[in-house]
Amino acid sequence: MNDLTNTSWLNWFRLASPSTFYPVAGRLIPFFWILSIAFGLAGLWVSFFVAPVDAVQGQGYRIIFVHVPASWMSMFLYIVMAAWAGVGLVFNTRLSAMMAQAIAPIGAVMAFLSLWTGAFWGKPMWGAWWVWDARLTSELILFFLYLGFIALQASIDQVRRADKAGAILALVGVVNVPIIYFSVKWWNTLHQGASVSMTKSPSMAHTMLWGMLLMALCFWMYAIAMTLMRVRVIILERESHADWVQNLKEVKG
């Protein structure tokens, strides 16, 4: 019996319990913050001092070092959120639903940041804050999907129903994301509104790519650290009646 509980498989499942996950997450948070800051400093140094000035776009192009990682993370986080929500729905694990709830606002912020920096980039490059480009439009719709998820969870009082309803919405959303993306893309090619294309960019200098990758890693680590911090707060809120929460140092003191 003792042998069995010590195998790594069962230890993984042990983490699915909020009471064991809470201290583990607490120990992991500083680690991810350090990684995020380190990648961020390196990425910013590369993107501001090492990467060359773009021949066509001048200095203004440097906003992509924030813009592109934010867009990547906004899409990636939606998939992760839907995956956690799906796991929560299938296995009825409380922590998975909490993870999905914790990720949603971070993804929404990333989508918003992507739209905002995109507008700042578009104004000098295209002469317009906003064009109905396929990517911009689908990013906007992704932002709406995040808002819908957050609003649905927030308006249901019973935790169980909120988790399950949110999970269904996230899964429906994740099926729809590719459909929406392609429909917006075809709509765009049919209407030919803006004659600009972000896909046909000239091949990028290596240092630019490195700057972007480092910044993406920084955003990624930041998202993990923030998710863990948020999930710890959600655990405390939902499990406030439990003994182990009452006995925590930070709750007692």
Binding site: G148, L152, L169
Partner: peptide
């Protein structure tokens, strides 16, 4: 999903309208 919730109608439009976009695009297109 929004059955019996406070402000269900407005919430429902927030959830459903983004999912209607492909139909709108191909229908009007």
């Amino acid at each position: 999903l929004t059955l019996g919730l406070r402000g269900g109608g407005a919430l429902m439009s927030l959830l459903v309208l983004p999912l209607y976009i492909p139909v709108l695009i191909f229908g009007a297109g």
